[in-house]
Nucleic acid binder design. Sequence first.
DNA 1: GATGCGAATTGATCTGCATCAAGGTTGCGG
DNA 2: CCGCAACCTTGATGCAGATCAATTCGCATC
Lengths: 266, 266
Amino acid sequence: MQINSHPGELTMINIISQPRIRNDTMDTLSSRIQNGDVPAVCRSCEARHGGVCSALTPAQLVELSKHSSRRTIDAGTEFIGQGESISSYSNILKGVVKLSKVMADGRQQIVGLQFAPDFMGRPFLGESRMAAEAAIDTEICVFPRRAIERLIAETPGLEHLLHSQALKELDEARDWMLTLGRKTAQEKVASFLALIASHSDPEAEEKSMFELPLSRADIADFLGLTIETVSRQMTKLRKEGIIQIENNRHVTVPDLGRLVAAAGND
Amino acid sequence: MQINSHPGELTMINIISQPRIRNDTMDTLSSRIQNGDVPAVCRSCEARHGGVCSALTPAQLVELSKHSSRRTIDAGTEFIGQGESISSYSNILKGVVKLSKVMADGRQQIVGLQFAPDFMGRPFLGESRMAAEAAIDTEICVFPRRAIERLIAETPGLEHLLHSQALKELDEARDWMLTLGRKTAQEKVASFLALIASHSDPEAEEKSMFELPLSRADIADFLGLTIETVSRQMTKLRKEGIIQIENNRHVTVPDLGRLVAAAGND
DNA sequence: GATGCGAATTGATCTGCATCAAGGTTGCGG
DNA sequence: CCGCAACCTTGATGCAGATCAATTCGCATC
């Protein structure tokens, strides 16, 4: 296990003494929650609105926050191993996590990308069927397995929320199966870029600019290709004017429509 | 829509008058349910034990059975189209259903296989993101969308059951992503055979015999290959002694261990 | 700016699977 | 028993993407 905990940010208790950040906006968004009762740590937390915590009452938040802790995970560090037993769940607060499977001989496939404020963990199963690794610097809020499972049992809304997320991930996985099984290399790369664009800039209609959260090697593992093929297809898309590449990681898409067409989704 | 309804078997009401089948075994298995209160149609139904209905009380079963109907679907007929709006859910009672996605130019990928007593349908979403087609002759029990959603809201155990199935399907989809993205043609075919073997004969340790529920074309669409490649790899596996092929559809696996090794799962 | 190193690109060649093209098998209706 | 059609197998050839092999780029450190 290679979790990096920054001093003064590891536990909830330490964070409580920090100044609240962006509190005004949060209050606006969460008119239905009584902020006075919500733990201070949670008040500035994104996950309280989109993540698991949005299904909890203030009293439950208080209880859960006693057992949870924030962690910062550096890019490239694996924090759950394939086949490892699971003793905790977590919420992604910031960053991107890749879920991957490895074969005995080392062949690897990324089977999912998770963004904030996704919930991570496989409920009702003792061990992880894949590895989780931070693709870029990432912050998560970790809950002990026991606490979450108790909350699920007593809060139907929470199970509904996790069920919805599982269905969303299932839809994504099946979309990706079509990409892996039937698309050409160019379509695969375009599909990946379209996926990232839609996540980093959900309401963009035409133009989009973003930082790729994955290296070429990661992209290859996500698309079932090699690094070289990914690179060639990126240059091909660039020469066709569908994308512009600044710093290897920074991509501009002048016309999302053309990108989506190149991805084979017409 | 091409649903084939056999006269006398279409509605619950007609079935009520039929003799009960395998009633003794059923009673043994379901000691916790008062059979006297359970609708007669449901008493001989497999899905009452493994499927959605196992989470319902006898009173709920009675209510649901009033709105549900049995249907027989011939092999090869599509009964839900991609992008079609969903007005019902169903339980598979018998048979195999393939879920597939098609691209605009006709390329197709099977993204899931469902066996009895799986639940079919995408809760909380108005339209289907893929097509459903019977791979072999199949029987389903159809419930109106409204009825199921009402039951979910009032029965936490039902949502838990559907959540568990969604997680199971997600695990399967991700396993298949590894197969599609990183395995060779031979490993793909071996993986498919191993999958079918495990479904048709779950507790077999060494030897297994089964009927393939899919044609070569379907297998190709499931594996992201062509018919020809599937056929070649089947003969290759046969010549290597890993499988025996009787009638194109009937396969014998003398040593499951060797098959699993050929599938790349060591 | 020079140095060094991992990451990315680019080029040459190879190969696994697709594609194209015949046959062979099975089963059904006349 | 024959002929047709759907399905499967087998063979010959082509090509997309893998593999092998240099560069080149980006960026941090001195």
